[in-house]
Structures are given as structure tokens and as C-alpha cells.
């Protein structure tokens, strides 16, 4: 076999090998319920909510802070799904939209004294601990970044969706990719540091 042929063979072998080794199992982003070619549910299962809650109206057009409803994000591990009386606190007083079908459904739940069975969209595995409080305290309260940006790191631009859907992979490699980046320690400073990378920070 001459030299040129051998090099060509190596290039072909390397190309085949690399395609298998470096095949990316996760698809970041994509339409609701999208799957990878090997059937992996990269973005979680398709979730249909009992009421098609318009995040785009509340967080987008009305500019309501995410933490007005998801109150626990700033002081606990979980951000929390708001209780029905949080919805009613405002909607009792908003006469203009009471005849809309979604609001009628809301009042139905309220009159039947039933909680709305919201379904979880951003569901992490049971062996993972994610602390909303630390992320919100650091980026929103200390660095005063806009709330849409801070929540959007993991949740995408919810303010442009109706019901929330997963647009980020939420896999370990995806978390670490952000923790490895050099972030500014304070707004306006030049000192950078990256997120902690201890196993037991997230694995429990």
C-alpha cells in the first residue's frame, strides 16, 4: 500500500471513529416534546397543563416579576408553583377579563375549592439537588441583573411562551458548562470566578 492510500485510510477511519465517539446525545433547544435520533427525551416529556397559562401576558406584556408568583425561588431550594389564591388575589379584581374561557376555568376551580393540578415541566432527577435561592441571590439581588435574564439561564425566555416548556437540556454537562465559565464576581468588577464544582454540591 502506498503512502497516500494509507493516509487516506487513516483519515476515513478517524472520521468514522470520531462520529461515533463524539456523537452528541443531547439536543439543546427544539420544539416541545422533541426527541433525539436515538429516542432520548432531551427536553422531558410533553406536558399539557390543565389551563394554558399565558406567561407571555403576565411576565411579558404586564412585566410582572417571576418571583411575584414563584415566591420561594429567592429563599428556598424550589421556586414553588403559586397557590390558587395567588391567582385569585388579582383576578377577583380584574373585571375586564372575567368572561375569557381560561379565566372562567380558573373561577371554576376556585368555586369547587379544588387546586389546579399543574404539572411539573422542569423536573430534575431525584438524586440531584438544585438550589434556586443561591442562584437568585447571587445574580438577581447581588449583581442586579434583570430577572428575565437570570431565570432565563435555565428556563429560557418564558416570557415569550404561554405554558412553560423546557428549552435547556438540564443535564449535568450542561450545568457544568456554565459553572466552568468565568463570571464576574460583582457587577462592574474585573475579578472573575467560576461556580463550585464539588460533586456533593448537586448530588445528594
Amino acid at each position: 500500500m502506498n503512502y497516500g492510500k494509507r493516509i487516506f485510510l487513516w483519515i476515513v477511519l478517524f472520521w468514522i471513529g470520531s462520529a461515533q465517539v463524539f456523537a452528541e446525545p443531547f439536543v439543546q433547544g427544539g420544539p416541545i416534546g422533541s426527541q433525539t435520533s436515538d429516542g432520548y427525551d432531551a427536553l422531558g416529556p410533553v406536558v399539557e397543563q390543565p389551563i394554558e397559562f399565558p406567561h407571555n401576558t403576565h411576565a411579558g406584556r404586564m412585566q410582572i416579576n417571576c418571583m411575584y408568583c414563584h415566591t420561594y425561588a429567592r429563599r428556598s431550594n424550589v421556586s414553588g408553583i403559586p397557590r390558587l389564591d395567588k391567582c385569585m388575589g388579582c383576578h377577583n379584581l380584574i373585571e375586564g377579563v372575567k368572561d375569557r374561557p381560561r379565566i372562567k376555568k380558573l373561577f371554576e376551580y376556585w368555586e369547587n375549592k379544588q387546586p389546579i393540578p399543574w404539572k411539573k415541566v422542569h423536573d430534575l432527577p431525584d438524586f440531584v439537588r438544585f438550589n434556586h435561592e443561591r442562584h437568585i441571590q447571587r445574580f438577581y439581588f447581588q449583581e442586579k441583573r434583570p430577572v428575565r435574564e437570570v431565570c432565563g439561564y435555565c428556563h429560557g425566555d418564558i416570557a415569550s411562551m404561554t405554558t412553560a416548556r423546557r428549552v435547556k437540556a438540564l443535564s449535568m454537562g450542561w450545568c457544568v458548562s456554565c459553572h466552568q465559565k468565568d463570571h464576574l464576581e460583582k457587577a462592574g468588577s474585573t475579578v472573575t470566578s467560576h461556580g463550585p464544582n464539588d460533586c456533593w454540591l448537586c448530588h445528594k
Binding site: F127, P196, D198, C199, W200, H203
Partner: peptide, 14 residues
């Protein structure tokens, strides 16, 4: 299993 920054010997089940 690895050593954590606060001196603990960790075990990651996954």
C-alpha cells in the same frame, strides 16, 4: 469517590 473541598470523602451513587 473523591475528596470534597471541606475535607469529606464523598460517594456519588450515579
Amino acid at each position: 469517590t473523591h475528596h470534597s473541598p471541606d475535607g469529606l470523602n464523598t460517594q456519588v451513587y450515579n
